[in-house]
Amino acid sequence: MYNSKPHQEHDLGRLHQHMLDTRLAVLISHGEQGLLATHLPVLLDTAEGEFGTVYAHLARANRQWHDLEQGAEALLVFPGADAYVSPSYYPSKADNPKVVPTWNYLAVHAYGAAQVIHEPAPLLQIVSRLTDRHEQGRSQPWQVADAPADYLDGMLRAIVGIRLPIARLQGARKLSQNRSAEDLAGVRDGLAASTDYLDNQLAAQMRHL
């Protein structure tokens, strides 16, 4: 992705945390079937590989996995909070009206060659780990083992697993770092005063700049 230098994020811990906080990623690939994209929950194992490894599963009827199995490079997009930035947030506008709107946002892109998993045992492990992650915190968490075994076997035959060791990570943290300290504070305060939750999230991120 295009990402100018002031907005590049290279801290691996921060990149990983963003990925862990993203509940739904977008898997993008290009192969014989053209450009394909699937929205899916993913599981990041930060201890596996230099940049981590992502696990997920696709419906067997989703032909994207055929391209992945042929070795097509995949891109996983982890979107974050975003916000419209009005020129009215800039105190400097009073002296210099040459300002235009922009957009602030957080995003991480992960690249790698995916491995497709058909075997029931590792598939069950992926599904179980994903479920446990999203059930945690509930007073009575549901477990995959709660489903009847024969039903579960049928469900596993209807999916394929994805294992994607991350070869490259890109992080975008566009939070008005290219503006003066006065303008940056104006954007932060403007977003904090907004009634939009995503605006408030970005304002909170800007407090750590």
Rank of each mutant, 00 (worst) to 15 (best):
L152I: 05
H109S: 07
A94I: 00
V108R: 12
Y151V: 14
N96V: 06
I126P: 13
K93R: 13
I126R: 12
T131M: 13
Q125R: 14
N104D: 14
R133F: 01
Q136V: 13
T102M: 07
P97A: 02
L156I: 14
A114K: 06
A121R: 09
P148D: 05
A107D: 06
P91M: 13
L152K: 03
L152N: 04
G137Y: 08
V100D: 01
G154V: 03
Q140K: 15
W103D: 04
P91V: 14
V144C: 04
A158R: 04
P101F: 08
H118S: 10
A149D: 13
Y111C: 12
L124Q: 15
D95N: 03
P97C: 06
L130D: 01
L106S: 09
D150W: 00
Q140R: 14
P120C: 04
T102Q: 02
V144Q: 09
G112E: 02
L156D: 01
N104E: 12
E135S: 14
V99G: 10
W142C: 10
Q140C: 12
A113H: 10
R157E: 10
P97I: 04
P148N: 01
D132G: 02
L164K: 00
Q125V: 15
P91Y: 09
D132N: 08
A110H: 10
S139H: 07
G154P: 07
R129F: 09
A110E: 05
V108N: 13
S92Y: 06
M155C: 02
A113R: 15
E135P: 12
L130P: 10
Q140G: 09
P101W: 14
A158H: 02
D95R: 02
P141I: 02
Q125G: 05
L130T: 08
G137A: 08
A107H: 06
V160Y: 06
D132Y: 02
L130S: 07
A110C: 05
D132P: 04
R133I: 00
N104C: 06
D153Y: 06
Q125D: 08
N96S: 08
D150I: 02
L164C: 00
K93L: 10
I159R: 01
T102R: 01
A158D: 03
G154Q: 08
P122E: 09
G161I: 12
E135D: 12
E135I: 15
S92R: 05
W142L: 14
T131K: 11
A121E: 15
V108K: 11
Q140L: 12
W142A: 10
K98P: 05
I117G: 10
V108L: 11
L106D: 08
A113T: 08
T102H: 03
R129K: 13
G154S: 05
Q115D: 12
Y151D: 05
V108D: 13
S92L: 07
P101D: 11
I162W: 05
L164E: 00
A107G: 10
S139I: 13
N96T: 06
K93A: 11
V144N: 07
L106C: 14
Q136S: 09
A113Q: 11
M155T: 06
S139Y: 03
D153L: 08
Q125L: 12
I162E: 00
L106P: 12
A121G: 08
D95E: 09
R157H: 10
I126C: 13
